[in-house]
């Protein structure tokens, strides 16, 4: 593969990758530049630069409350999802019982159903129960949406847990709760951190289901941004987006560091006890 043709093919492939990365980064870069655009219509190229959209965002645009609400919803639903999901994963991975596979499939079902349908269905349910507009209904819906990810990641993580450590703990007289907290959970660290990050991001960015259930005065941030963008086109949204991009970059870096420390993405995959069938 060291022929001239091979080198040309390799160069073509690499340039394609670079073009692909430009495609991925272009809209994000444009948003950042546009947040300093002096023109209120976001005209391009910017006729001048200004920071007034940042001022406008903080003072007038009304994104403050939605941001706080989104953070609260994401925090509550992530913690709930981690606890409920880890219990479910332990049930699935550690016990053999009738209906186990059906239960596992059922918990994954919200992945397949379009989120807009889940949101609309939940909206009718909460209206009937007269819970509509309550903060907890949004967190509860996000819990159900994020559970499949947590369960999948933790079930995969459990296949890598060294059972001898748990047995040793039991032999030394630890009660089941101590075994869980001291022997099992520390080994699940990586899976739990990634599951938490994933749930938080999914909840914080959730729009399709939330748009029906948040209630008119209680918008979460993505809903507020969606409604703002339908009405206005000025760069206030770019200023807000730039701050969110900055925050997500920091978040992405943090997750990347954690993944690297637990031994790469492979550490998240389920352990294989037997060789793949193809190798037989």
């Amino acid at each position: 593969m060291t022929s001239g043709r091979g080198i040309a093919a390799r160069a073509a492939l690499s340039s394609f990758l670079v073009l692909g990365l430009v495609f991925i980064l272009l809209p994000i870069a444009i948003v950042v530049v546009n947040s300093f655009n002096a023109s209120p219509f976001g005209s391009w190229p910017p006729p001048g630069f200004s920071t007034r959209w940042y001022t406008n965002m903080f003072e007038n645009a009304g994104f403050g409350d939605p941001t706080i609400r989104s953070l609260q919803v994401a925090l509550v639903s992530t913690v709930a999802s981690l606890v409920v999901g880890t219990f479910a994963a332990l049930g699935i991975a550690r016990y053999r019982f009738f209906g186990r596979r059906a239960a596992q499939g059922f918990l994954a079902a919200p992945l397949i159903v379009p989120k807009i349908a889940i949101g609309f269905a939940a909206f009718i349910l909460f209206l009937k129960l007269e819970w509509y507009g309550d903060f907890l209904t949004v967190a509860l819906t996000h819990l159900v949406i994020t559970l499949p990810f947590v369960v999948t990641l933790v079930v995969a993580g459990l296949t890598r847990v060294d059972r001898t450590l748990e047995e040793a703990a039991m032999d030394l007289g630890a009660v089941p709760r101590q075994v869980l907290l001291r022997a099992t959970l520390p080994q699940l660290r990586g899976a739990l951190v990634v599951a938490a990050a994933f749930s938080f991001i999914v909840s914080f960015d959730e729009l399709d289901a939330s748009i029906f259930i948040v209630g008119q005065q209680n918008n979460t941030l993505p809903v507020a941004m969606f409604i703002y963008m339908e009405k206005y086109q000025d760069p206030t949204l770019a200023a807000l987006s730039t701050i969110l991009i900055g925050a997500s970059l920091i978040g992405a870096l943090a997750v990347a560091v954690v993944i690297a420390r637990i031994g790469g993405l492979r550490a998240l995959a389920p352990a294989r006890e037997t060789a793949p069938e193809e190798a037989a």
Partner: peptide
């Protein structure tokens, strides 16, 4: 082995997740 066993601890561990998903997802749908 699943078919014959009724390991109650499995059901207990799964129940919060199943209740939440049944309620907000299955009943609503």
């Amino acid at each position: 082995a699943d078919r014959r066993r009724f390991e109650w601890r499995g059901y207990v561990l799964l129940s919060p997740a199943l209740i939440a998903t049944s309620f907000v997802f299955a009943v609503a749908m």
